[in-house]
């Protein structure tokens, strides 16, 4: 590939990827951006960010944060335990589990959620943060089981066997060998699980019944009410943690020499 072709590819790629993000950012910092202005006439400084101090948005961001954290932690525990048990099972059960986990990941949230919604209601969790958390755990556990399976599958089981041969108890194998090896992966898994919950809208609406207000729910209602500027600001806030997560992932993969 010639240098010129490479530069053209990078430019086209930058245009395709960055244009929506730049337009979103410009809308977020402009109090007014009327047709046919291509660029906003003036980007307000303080005024544009007033929406960020809106108690509704602050409360929604806090709810989203706690839900994401709890989903990440609980999903990691469930995902790693399941993957650990399944990697030692027979091939057919393993295959069934990976397909089941994949189903949890790609099953339409609303399709699996309509039944889940009534189950939550009958358990008394409908319209509660706990009910929404349990609902978020469904896709998150699917993702994190697949994630944990990839890690545990590529780990050398020889180290574990050697530790057992040298007299380490089962507990010592866990505390001295496996956990130190897996700690960074647990952290990545928590981040991944948290991100799945952070952007979740369909299950929150269905199980939360409009009572549990997360950032995506507030964003949807802002856009539907025609408040594009506050909506764009909320969209940027919603995009920041995943961007940070992606940055950490890029840093980690560069350190290990993997491609990203």
């Amino acid at each position: 590939m010639t240098h010129a072709t490479h530069r053209f590819t990078l430019l086209a790629l930058a245009g395709w990827v960055l244009t929506p993000i730049v337009v979103l950012a410009l809308r977020a910092v402009s109090l007014s951006w009327r047709y046919p202005q291509i660029m906003p006439m003036a980007t307000a400084s303080g005024g544009a960010f007033e929406a960020l101090a809106d108690p509704r948005l602050v409360a929604a961001a806090a709810t989203s944060f706690w839900l994401a954290l709890a989903t990440g932690v609980l999903g990691t525990v469930l995902g790693f335990v399941t993957a650990r048990l399944v990697t030692r099972a027979s091939g057919r059960l393993q295959q069934l589990t990976w397909l089941g986990a994949l189903f949890l990941v790609v099953a339409p949230p609303l399709a699996s959620g309509v039944g889940l919604q009534v189950v939550m209601l009958s358990l008394g969790f409908g319209g509660t943060v706990l009910g929404v958390l349990l609902a978020h755990l469904v896709p998150a556990t699917g993702y994190l089981t697949l994630f944990a399976a990839g890690i545990l599958g590529s780990m050398q089981s020889g180290i574990e066997d050697e530790a057992r041969t040298l007299g380490a108890s089962r507990l010592q194998v866990w505390t001295r060998v496996l956990l130190p090896q897996l700690a960074p992966r647990f952290a990545e898994s928590v981040v991944l699980g948290a991100l799945i919950s952070w952007g979740q809208l369909a299950l929150t609406l269905l199980v939360g019944g409009g009572v549990v207000r997360t950032l995506p729910v507030e964003l949807l209602s802002l856009v539907r009410s025609g408040n594009d500027q506050a909506g764009a600001l909320a969209a940027l806030v919603l995009s920041l943690p995943p961007l940070l997560g992606l940055g950490l992932l890029v840093r980690a993969t560069r350190r290990t020499g993997a491609a990203l």
Partner: peptide, 29 residues
């Protein structure tokens, strides 16, 4: 075309960081 270019790879994965509802608003704008 970008498998050997760190900048290209980074640019290409950026949309992963934008939640679907935020991307939908960007498309609307």
């Amino acid at each position: 075309r970008v498998q050997q270019s760190p900048l290209g790879r980074l640019l290409a994965v950026l949309p992963l960081a934008v939640p679907h509802v935020a991307a939908a608003l960007a498309a609307l704008l």
